[in-house]
Write a protein that binds this DNA or RNA. Structure first.
Lengths: 235, 235
DNA sequence: ACGCGGAGTTTACATGACGTTAATAATCAA
DNA sequence: TTGATTATTAACGTCATGTAAACTCCGCGT
């Protein structure tokens, strides 16, 4: 059952900036067993480039001496919660910790059991769940409108009900209007890569899509056949 | 970006639930000198009545043995951040602290310098001020009205009683009317991030919600299922 | 302490929608 | 016309969902 992952818009992972391999492993494991995904980086450079490419839901940084500069840089570049992790035996001197807080770090915490760290992280994330709906995702092509969040499709002004497969197929079409999709490519996109499936399984879904969308399903004007090649959405 | 200046302005006070007079004084002083107002209560009863009359911006609770019951009660009655303060010499045993976190306490912290406590509180408030202050406490969608402060729901003019879970679920729906929530996303939002939970648990609560809300629960017109995807509130 | 009751969770099962296959008809290109 | 490609339909198995009910857990009152 691969269905759940696609629509949920999976939360960003926890980004761990830790030098010690051993520590990284144990944290990674602790988070993984609590249902969190993690990414690990070991250098400042890697941290910053990772931040450019992905959006973690929280960052844990192993605290160092004189870390202010890049912590500030990090804080400026993202609003994601930052946890400063003090490793080693000697506790972080008070004024050092306070400096972190002044940099708007969300939590400075001494090395504890991984379980407790996970609990603290979870407590922070509870507060940071975005108030829903950052950017509504919807498409338009011709007189077809598709709202991915609402899972709604309108053709010529009135809503039509699509099954999950139909919806996904139409989504492929509308994301590249006019482009021809071979059966095999459509199968890969909708059913998943490497799914051996009778090619003509798609035909049936195309058919039912046409039944629901076309004004005259017998002479398709929206989803048109390109003989010998595949199907495309007429723009 | 997170602006620290506006936070200290006019804003609910910090509610301190501390028994020891001396400790109360010192905390009060520390917060006062950092621009926070405080209220102090010394008994559970006073805490709960104060909560009914005012809306603090954060609550600090001196941790006791076996505090779960009223912490839970507190957590259910408000969304304000709660800090569990461990006083005394012996550190809080691990699993005890974890219990607090499971009750959705925001931070469990051992007695430190007042300055550091203030810094930690400020870090939490940075995250929580926007929701507390500018999030509407009252929603309306169709003929559904929801008052978060009063914890009341009205459908078509008359009040219905919802359990805490039901209430939270409906809240997610009404904050983004029409948007489809996958089971997993709803679980994350209501039960908390990373809680592995049988997806089916949600169905049951949806069912009881329908029983209470729908005119004809057999044919849901308000909370509709989007097969293979999730549920949404029909607008 | 004990039991009661409500809330939440899990289990189990019936139902019906959905996806797939296969078989047949229609259409198009040589 | 003939073979290949596509359209259509029916049938069937699987899976998602709805629902009831049992069970656990916790708070509350006796």
């Amino acid at each position: 059952m691969l269905t759940s992952s696609s629509i949920t818009g999976r939360q960003g992972a926890i980004l761990l900036f830790v030098r010690a391999e051993l520590l990284a492993r144990s944290l990674e494991k602790a988070f993984a067993s609590n249902g969190f995904q993690t990414m690990v980086v070991a250098t400042e450079a890697a941290l910053l480039t990772t931040m450019k490419e992905t959006t973690p839901s929280l960052i844990i940084v192993e605290r160092q001496q004189e870390q202010s500069p890049y912590i500030r840089q990090l804080r400026m570049s993202t609003t994601v919660p930052i946890v400063s992790l003090v490793v080693g035996e000697q506790p972080c001197p008070d004024d050092e910790c306070l400096k972190d807080y002044e940099q708007e770090v969300d939590l400075v915490v001494a090395s504890q059991t991984p379980r407790e760290l996970v609990a603290r992280v979870r407590a922070i994330l509870r507060r940071c769940v975005p108030p829903v709906e950052l950017a509504p995702r919807h498409y338009r092509a011709g007189n077809i409108r598709m709202d991915l969040d609402r899972h709604e499709v309108m053709v010529a002004g009135h809503t039509i009900e699509l099954t999950p497969k139909e919806f996904k197929i139409l989504q492929q079409f509308i994301e590249a209007p006019g482009r021809v999709f071979s059966r095999q490519e459509m199968l890969n996109r909708v059913w998943g890569e490497g799914y051996a499936l009778e090619e003509h399984a798609l035909d049936v879904h195309i058919h039912s899509l046409r039944q629901k969308m076309e004004t005259n399903p017998a002479e398709p004007g929206l989803i048109v056949t390109v003989r010998g090649v595949g199907y495309k959405l007429r723009v």
